[in-house]
Write a protein that binds this DNA or RNA. Structure first.
Lengths: 333, 333
DNA sequence: CTGAAAGCGCTAACAT
DNA sequence: ATGTTAGCGCTTTCAG
């Protein structure tokens, strides 16, 4: 049997209430009795039972995090930002991988709610009607991070993916390229696909360049798909002289695919990636890429969630973090 | 107010016990009444409170995972293995980053125990006396993964790091190299440093090669430290013709450092890494490396933990997974 | 400043 | 097959 607050109370010859007070740092305890209690706790090796506390107080100091895949460099970095801030605010994190699978996501939300988490951080592809329904019925605050919510009906933190893609492609165009390839994950993936795709097309249009289906390769966001994308776009009737890849990992694939086929980067083809993961400096040439502050997105979203959980006033429910281009060697100086 | 089991009981005109039975899939319920209850649950939108259940049943179906840094490729992959198996056995995971900081680790163990996790998975550097003390007093099973426990007093899953390093270095030596560099994280880190260092020295000794301090560079396990290591070891009085790096990330640094200084890999210098993270195929030349089954270590350790939690019979408390060399292009065919 | 007592929502005997 | 009844360990009024 573990020792309980009752045992401590008896040992210290006070009431449970008093023990509870000292354990919770309530100032209304005479120093002398506080000491008595502390001693008893020490002597008995008492450790408060957070489950009982949770039941009584209706707070678990635990938040649920639904993430597509913790083994992805991108999400792992985000997760670290989340965890650090959570720790700072004394929360623990229940981490769940969803693989962006809607069924799983819905199921996980339910599980987390059953576990009485104080809040949920949702990272994923997209918010569907069904997600929205769930979220609305949740009794705790929910914040989205790196997740597209068309209707902007839930608090979220993001960067402007479309604008970021637009900026990157514009940079390429302004360097004189008229044939810019686009390599991405599934186009129907809201963040890694669609938004960047739209930004890409906008940039072309803005500069009166024709859109060419042959310069587009949509794979699965992996290195190998980047590699393969090269096969496809370099076979276009008119080859691209620059490539914008939707993730750094794909960009590495593109660079190596290009090099394997004896093209030189950046001399023959310039390449820009997206995310600025640690991978970007781990290639030759190093990768020029759109900086997405992953750690910060995680940190800020967690911070936002803590505010909701404490019912603090929140300014903007939708926060958009800045992005920028980091110039490295995969583009010409 | 959320709806409780009591509300459901009233709505279905049965007792709480019966509701509890159907919620928990107890077969001793007449189909008809089961349906009545299910309907009531549906109608009320009832969602069981896991905290209350936890308090009453003394099981939370949650396990704590203490991990050095989730943003590391290596640990993220391990975490994925852990989470997948946990999900399979209906457990959730409370994920905590320790940064291998002993204070934090001890503190986290306590927090997790307070939260009444059903078990703990500990990944980290090393088990000290103090850790051991904590573990012994824990009321739940603890399994170590990718963590060195000198006294082998706790259940754990690992590969034989020393042997693996020995094998890699031996491979290099048998290819005719007499000057093999060793690049690693802090030598005093049990897994990434000491064990591999020992394996390295053993291999030299076995083949009657002299140990040369100048060929050893211990940094911080990062890409940049790999890069810098090259500066050091290539300045040795007699340069190495092969390098064994303790992690893939360092190995990438070494390869690029070498290439930046106009050495050719593998022609001038052969390189072998360690881990077989996804990075290994994301370099040119692709990296020959020691395969450490990260996902499996995570999965197996979680599986082991479930056995302890279910008080099942466990065969070996210490499991050692196999390692092997994966030959790629950073070594000559 | 301290204590008594009523739950929090559920499970687990024990009855029936 | 179903109901009754204690708790699980803690927080939280409410008194004093």
């Amino acid at each position: 049997m573990n020792t309980t607050i009752y045992d401590v109370a008896r040992e210290a010859a006070v009431s449970m209430a008093t023990v509870s007070r000292v354990v919770n740092g309530n100032p209304n305890v005479k120093p002398a009795t506080r000491k008595k209690v502390l001693d008893a706790i020490e002597r008995l090796g008492y450790r408060p039972n957070a489950v009982a506390r949770g039941l009584a107080s209706k707070k678990t100091t635990t938040v649920g995090v639904i993430i597509p895949d913790i083994s992805s460099i991108f999400f792992a970095e985000l997760a670290r930002g989340i965890e650090d801030i959570a720790t700072m605010y004394k929360y623990n994190i229940i981490l769940c991988n969803s693989d962006q699978n809607k069924e799983k996501e819905i199921h996980l939300i339910n599980t987390l709610l059953e576990k009485q988490v104080d809040g949920i951080l949702f990272l994923g592809g997209e918010i569907t009607e069904e997600h929205a329904e769930q979220f609305k019925h949740a009794s705790v605050p929910i914040v989205l991070a790196a997740t597209v919510d068309e209707n902007k009906q839930f608090p979220s933190v993001n960067i402007d993916y479309q604008q970021a893609a637009f900026d990157a492609v514009t940079e390429l165009i302004e360097r004189g390229h008229e044939r810019v390839g686009f390599v991405s994950g599934p186009i129907d993936d809201p963040v890694t696909g669609y938004q960047k795709y739209t930004g890409y097309k906008e940039a072309l249009k803005k500069h009166s360049l024709a859109f060419d289906e042959q310069l587009v390769a949509a794979g699965e966001n992996t290195y190998d798909d980047g590699l393969e994308a090269v096969d496809r776009i370099m076979k276009a009737d008119q080859m691209p002289t620059a490539v914008f890849a939707a993730t750094d990992e794909m960009a590495l694939g593109v660079i190596h695919g290009l090099q394997d086929a004896d093209w030189r980067v950046p001399d023959d083809v310039e390449v820009i990636g997206f995310d600025n993961t640690r991978l970007a400096t781990m290639v030759r040439p190093t990768l020029t890429t759109v900086v997405q502050p992953m750690y910060d997105i995680g940190a800020v979203s967690m911070r936002l969630l803590t505010k909701y959980m404490n019912q603090e006033d929140v300014g903007d429910h939708i926060v958009e973090l800045p992005h920028r281009l980091e110039y490295r060697m995969s583009t010409r100086a």
